[in-house]
Amino acid sequence: MTFGDFTPEAFAFGFFTILTLGGAFGVVGSRNLVRSAVWLMVSLFGIAGFFVLLSAPFLAAVQVLVYIGAIGILITFAIMLTRSMTNLKERFNKQWWLAALAALTAFLLLMVTVIVPTWGEMGAEEIPPTVASTAQLGEAFFSGWGYVLPLEVASLLLTAAMIGAIVIAREDD
């Protein structure tokens, strides 16, 4: 694919790229933390669109439900509970230029590994249209040949995290 042929898919990709990266810049750059949280939701919505483009609809639904729904609300609550709105003067610490330099260097290094064709020729891929369905994902999660043990460990981790969050955030009397 070149930049010349303009398919609806490429248009959607560009739209979701703008949503994701623009939202990310909003998260990092906003003075007001509530605006940061809303920008985070915009960015996560763009990532859900990427999941749809990559034919992973279940992950897109989970992204909207868990990330935008649950974690977005959690972060908003944390902003309100900690009165983060009172000190809006300085967004960045004193080493922000060093952080920007490090981030830029990391991006350039990553781009080198992306551009160098380690994973096949650039642009010439033919993708098989057959795609694993959500039913297959469920079978993989709950069958013995699949990921049933990691799934149990993940549920245990969620339980531990929930109890830990309650214990840590509880007011000791």
Binding site: T17, S36, I79, N87, R91, A102, F107
Partner: peptide, 24 residues
Amino acid sequence: VAAALFVIGAYGVLARRNAVAVLM
């Protein structure tokens, strides 16, 4: 796009002062 997003997030982790912003 993923590399750009990762790097923007890394800059936020390194440079933001507010802990909630770091978590975001």
